[in-house]
Design a protein around this nucleic acid. Structure first.
Lengths: 333, 333
DNA sequence: ATAGCTTCTGAAAAGGTTTTCATCTAGTGA
DNA sequence: TCACTAGATGAAAACCTTTTCAGAAGCTAT
């Protein structure tokens, strides 16, 4: 591998000068600059990132932490982040977490050895030590889909509770009063969306029926399917179901059709997220849209802004969720 | 940040000894070893990866290159790779490519500056310089979903052509003789699957009708939808459609139902890939299964094996594709 | 002629690790 | 007692950059 020294030797200058040329510093005679540049091109020389990171004490890398699941929602979010992070001149380093406390600890250890310039969290982690560590180290960070009041990290998210309310409200407005809920056991958004469901019911004087709620261990279609199957088996009459995420909703629709029930004729289904695929199910999934792409962009912007211009205290970017009407909800009567 | 020198000072030994302890080398008195270990734990010290990469000339990072698209198929593949790469002790570094020649050139430049230990390519890149560079540098590599005979890189893939044949054959066996094809313009697999389609027709003496083929510029549901719409508009009678990927098939089903055509009663649809979601569409998508998870694992294993034990010449791992029967294909008569 | 700037350049240090080489100590066998 | 070996340790070099500092050269103003 050719190094800066080779270029220096070939150009008859010192490594310092080559470095100055490469980093577009002043104080290099234009004639020398040109000679160096020519040799660089000729030799196909590229700076060694590792050595650069070493001396600069920065890696030009942003970590993106995704706990446990890597579903369609996160794929879209991640793709968006990666795109804008690259535009800002940063590489993206993935951190998939697995489902365990030891995984979060392992992540923390790993984090300490990593020279990241910043970090984005998708979904909330259980281990508070991680946030505390980030705080102490002063690592630029952005939270995506949740916030952490006590730390005042910049965050981008929708009003989870209000968005769920919006979905259930939509159902109620269309005459539904026996509404099932399928949500996941994990993550703050699952709880918040459940709260939103309850709040909407309460606002319309509909008593909360525990038998209409089912909590599943994941947020994928398969979990939605088994959740819906459970609900059907309970024989609690219902005319509609709110699934806490679109993937859950897609699984629910599958379970309904497997059970000979038509959507939306027999049971209406509404989701939350509006992932790509929701526009392509049959029937098209009525859902609440989270502006995923924009949220990914904003998260990227926030970390980069912190890096470039220093920390801004307690900045939260709230996105609004909106109903997307497709064909999976029927108006009663 | 505490460094190895701090630990050395605290333990009253030299950095060399600490390094030996950390890397589990011999020639350290067990008493000293324990003292160092205690201080390391106490101080929460972790090795600095950048410095380590610098001196070791390896990064413990495998690059995964994904051209242009980042769809559901690739998400699953990527998740699988990341999982097994981590098991092998490697980090995963993403390289998303955009749709242009300059993007591939930019990638090549970037690649030169990167200290990767290995690289996995998902889908074939157009720019041959990239493979030549990899070859010259002797960088361990694995190809996933395609192969490059002239370079003899280890590769894992299915027989694209034969798999497509399998799908079309399945249709023909069920009495279909006017079969549409929706495929993408780009990537070798698109062309190969088209060849498979033609071959299956030829094998059953069905003349190839160009009007039944439509080529779309992407491999996502939206492209599948517009592709199907085009096919419908052409008014060329057909009883079945082979979509080159499941995402295309999902879009095709959507277009059919939008046009008042029922699947599979009016038109049968078969895909290829068997991505997660295909089990959850209504009707369930009949498709040809590519063992995505296993292929991801194998790719990871191959690069790691090359790194650990040196290059194995021209090793190709062929996976077999199998029909997955669900509800989107009807038997005629 | 001298002092004081500006522009340009190179030597050397720094960044945090690993590894080679040299040295020292203790133990073994003659 | 004397070589010799094995075990344990530290000093220093190396990995490849960037940046600071110092010095040289050329100019301007006194």
């Amino acid at each position: 591998m050719t190094s800066i020294k080779d270029i220096a030797r070939l150009a008859g200058v010192s490594p310092s000068t080559v470095s100055r040329v490469l980093n577009e510093r002043a104080y290099v005679r234009s004639e020398v600059r040109q000679r160096v540049l020519d040799i660089v091109r000729e030799q196909g020389y590229v700076q060694n990132h590792v050595a650069r990171s070493m001396v600069l004490q920065r890696s030009f890398t942003i970590g993106v932490v995704i706990p446990y699941l890597f579903n369609m929602f996160q794929r879209q979010l991640f793709a968006s982040m990666e795109f804008f992070l690259e535009q800002h001149g940063y590489k993206t380093q993935f951190f998939f977490l697995r489902w365990s406390d030891s995984s979060e600890q392992a992540f923390l250890r790993r984090l300490k050895g990593e020279t990241l310039d910043g970090i984005i969290f998708i979904h909330e982690l259980d281990n508070p030590l991680i946030y505390r560590y980030i705080q102490e180290r002063g690592l630029p960070v952005a939270l995506c889909t949740f916030e952490k009041q006590e730390f005042g990290f910049p965050a981008v998210h929708i009003e989870e509770e209000a968005s769920a309310e919006l979905a259930v409200e939509y159902l109620i407005r269309r005459g539904h009063r026996t509404i099932g809920l399928i949500t996941g056991e994990h993550f703050s958004f699952g709880r918040q969306r459940e709260d939103g469901y309850k709040k909407a019911l309460a606002a319309h004087d509909i008593p909360y029926t525990p038998e209409l709620t089912v909590r599943v261990p994941a947020y994928n279609p398969e979990a939605g399917r088994t959740g819906m199957l459970t609900l059907i088996k309970r024989k609690q009459p219902l005319t509609a179901v709110f699934a806490a995420t679109d993937e859950l909703a897609i699984g629910a629709i599958k379970a309904l059709s497997e059970s000979g029930l038509k959507v939306p004729e027999d049971v209406s289904v509404i989701g939350l997220d509006d992932i790509d695929i929701s526009a392509f199910t049959t029937p098209g999934l009525t859902t609440v849209r989270q502006p995923i792409f924009e949220m990914g962009k904003k998260s990227a912007d926030l970390v980069c802004e912190w890096i470039a211009r220093g920390r801004m205290q307690g900045r939260t970017e709230l996105f609004t969720a909106t109903i997307v009407e497709r064909e999976s909800v029927r108006t009663l009567q």
